[in-house]
Design a protein around this nucleic acid. Sequence first.
DNA 1: CGATGCCAGCTTGCATGGAAGCTGGCGCGC
DNA 2: GCGCGCCAGCTTCCATGCAAGCTGGCATCG
Lengths: 234, 234
Amino acid sequence: MARAGPARGGDGEKRPSLVDDAYAAMKRAIRNSDFAPGYQASEQEIALRLGMSRTPVHEAAIRLQEEGLVRVLPRRGILICAIAPEDMREIYDVIIALEGQAAERVAGLPEAERARIGAALAAHTEAMAEAQARGDLPAWGEADERFHQTLIEQAGNGRMIRIMQTITDQSHRARMLTLRLRQELDASVAEHRRIIAAIRDADPAGAHRQARQHRIRARDALLPLLERLGLRHL
Amino acid sequence: MARAGPARGGDGEKRPSLVDDAYAAMKRAIRNSDFAPGYQASEQEIALRLGMSRTPVHEAAIRLQEEGLVRVLPRRGILICAIAPEDMREIYDVIIALEGQAAERVAGLPEAERARIGAALAAHTEAMAEAQARGDLPAWGEADERFHQTLIEQAGNGRMIRIMQTITDQSHRARMLTLRLRQELDASVAEHRRIIAAIRDADPAGAHRQARQHRIRARDALLPLLERLGLRHL
DNA sequence: CGATGCCAGCTTGCATGGAAGCTGGCGCGC
DNA sequence: GCGCGCCAGCTTCCATGCAAGCTGGCATCG
């Protein structure tokens, strides 16, 4: 989760430049709402806070804009993007499609790989069950995130990983907000186990269907929740 | 296809800045291989060619890097990314997943919408059939592109549109290269018609399945072709 | 009192300069 | 002949300056 590096291809790890520092700092600030959605800051101000000049902040802002986290308004500053329920609908539709595909591919891997991945996924799922028993929601959320991250990563598609990372970043705040409102944590655990079973059985079609269904159900639980709460932007 | 604007959200159309000019020029140069894959240019050189200073070129390069079209090598210049067969495999897997989802959603729209979209898709498909009869491959390719573009756009998911745009840009050169080698143009037309039929019948599951199958077949026709030709990067 | 025009201040867009890092080739030592 | 180190040149990184654009408030006019 906490992969420090810049958005480089993946090989050459370098000492991060100021641009990378600015990128990481701004992204972190957005993630834990130090920069609240709707907040508008000047590049100068952020540069001052980070102890650098405007240039690296500006370039980091371009990258963040490309990922949909901020908008750079010409001559007005950097606007932290808010997420509306409609955005969550879009995000879930993408997740539903990609994660189904990822699960299918994982279930088509050779026996040894599937066993290893199944074990990792099962470990994360057990961590979820334990966290739930303890009533530890943050731990539940982290284990859930690791489960899905593992599923995507093991499908071995760099573009898919990147896309999922991007939209996961976009929806992170919304997920944190709604975590404590969700009533169906046990359903998630059960569904995860079904996904794992399909992978272990080398059943690509089944894995695809289970992963899809899991995300569809989560979407159908979450969206009405957002609407009911009238969270227009978060 | 030729949406002129910058990567703005979608509303405020502005007079393009120099950065936007540089972005558009470089993207166009990459599309029609004026910048061949593997080519490495200095920002200074490109800036000179475009009649501007290094700054806007640099910022445009950051955006292009974020989209996977180039890599900015620290202190070495801008490298035009090549596409390997493995990349095409990744790209197709994403397309397979997203386009199936898009077709499903379109097939779930109200009757009036479906009729309108079905007509548009049918028109593009007829254009393909006619181009094929004339032996006009470029026209076939453009009509095919319009069909898929329409399908995605009408699903009404901005993030999905953007993702597809990005990976379509990445694979554009490969598509152009292989267009004349493909033997199964008529299969595409037939499959398009099946997708349209499912949409008109308000059959989301069928539309999903047909769209998936269409892309899976295309992938399975294309990838061996690339391997056989030994096109390691294009 | 309301509307309009203007201006000051703040913000970024873009250019440019200084400095540091990387590459490749040349010369020296062995 | 071979390998190593060094240096020159090229390239980006980052800071900063200048100018233009936008906003909001104030004064002025109807």
